[in-house]
Simulated scan of single mutants.
Amino acid sequence: MTEDSRITAAQNQAAQNISQNRAAVVTGASTGIGEATVRALTAEGWTVFAVARRAERLAALEAETGAVGIPADIAEDDDVANLLARVTEAGGVGTLINIAGGARGADYVGAANTEDWEWMYRVNVLGTMKLTRAFLPMLRANGEGTVLNLTSTAGLAAYEGGAGYNAAKFAQHAVTGALRLEEAEHNLRVIEVAPGLVQTEEFALNRLGDQGAAAKVYQGVEKPLTAADVADVVRYAVSAPHHVNLDQIVIRPVAQAANHKLIRKG
């Protein structure tokens, strides 16, 4: 399929789906929860614009799922403008799912790495803001738009060694709450999904920079959440009748009673 025919097919499908609010932008789509969310939605017939920086991973996901991959850095203004233009040209969406984000480092405040903190704020907070700001006119015009932000239980309770990630996710949590208040008059549904411990391919590795250290995060934990578990919750939340707003969904494995209490065996 050529690029032009692929875009035309996406336009036709999106035009049909947007009237049913079954067209979505999903960020962070190259791995983990974002990738799993693309799979969950496309499996149910959604038109999905899958967004991430790694074009080669998006191409593979596109081939497998039928999603439309659009490489972009959500914190870069030019990339956001291009993404908005591409989605608009293809017919638009009624749902924006902000999953892109992540953590770097586990330093105490007294030993904080400034670059790590700046990166976490950039991708978790500024990226979410820039994407949301860009797509709000489209979502308002839809009449029954939805924004879903994937935050974290790290944005609900602080823990030692988590200050930078706590700060970024607390901020994203606050942005989500403010957006819900601001956009209710536009009938915009704003959902927050806050996962606890989720075992994915890259999250702990990217945070700690070492495969051995990353493995220890999940060591002895029976049945940590998977990306597919969280994606299924996201799928349900955005597929519910529009008048049903799941303001905040906290999802943890049973072994994690709280951020500070995790049951490990063996």
Rank of each mutant, 00 (worst) to 15 (best):
D4A: 15
S5I: 15
T8Q: 09
A9S: 14
N17M: 13
S19Y: 04
N21T: 08
R22F: 12
A24C: 06
G28V: 13
T31S: 14
E35T: 01
T37G: 03
V38G: 00
L41I: 07
T42Q: 07
G45Y: 08
G45I: 12
F49H: 00
V51K: 00
R53L: 14
E62M: 10
T65Q: 01
V68T: 08
P71D: 15
D78A: 15
L83E: 10
V87L: 14
T88F: 01
A90Y: 07
G91C: 07
L96E: 05
I99K: 00
A103D: 06
A106Q: 00
A106N: 07
A112Q: 09
A112R: 01
E115V: 13
D116H: 15
W119A: 14
M120Q: 13
Y121N: 10
R122Q: 15
V125C: 15
G127W: 11
L131S: 10
L131I: 14
R133G: 09
R133Q: 13
A134I: 05
A141F: 04
T146P: 05
L150H: 00
A154V: 12
A157K: 10
A157N: 06
A158Q: 02
Y165H: 10
A167D: 02
A168C: 09
F170K: 00
Q172W: 01
A174I: 12
V175W: 03
R180H: 08
L181K: 02
N187T: 06
R189E: 12
E192D: 12
A194W: 04
G196L: 10
V198K: 00
L208I: 13
G209Y: 01
G209A: 11
D210Y: 04
A213E: 14
A214Q: 01
A214V: 06
Y218T: 11
Q219C: 08
V221Q: 10
L225E: 10
V234K: 00
Y236V: 15
S239I: 14
S239K: 08
A240D: 05
P241H: 02
Q248F: 06
V250Y: 05
R252T: 13
V254S: 08
A257R: 03
H260V: 12
K261F: 13
L262F: 02
I263E: 08
K265P: 07
K265L: 15
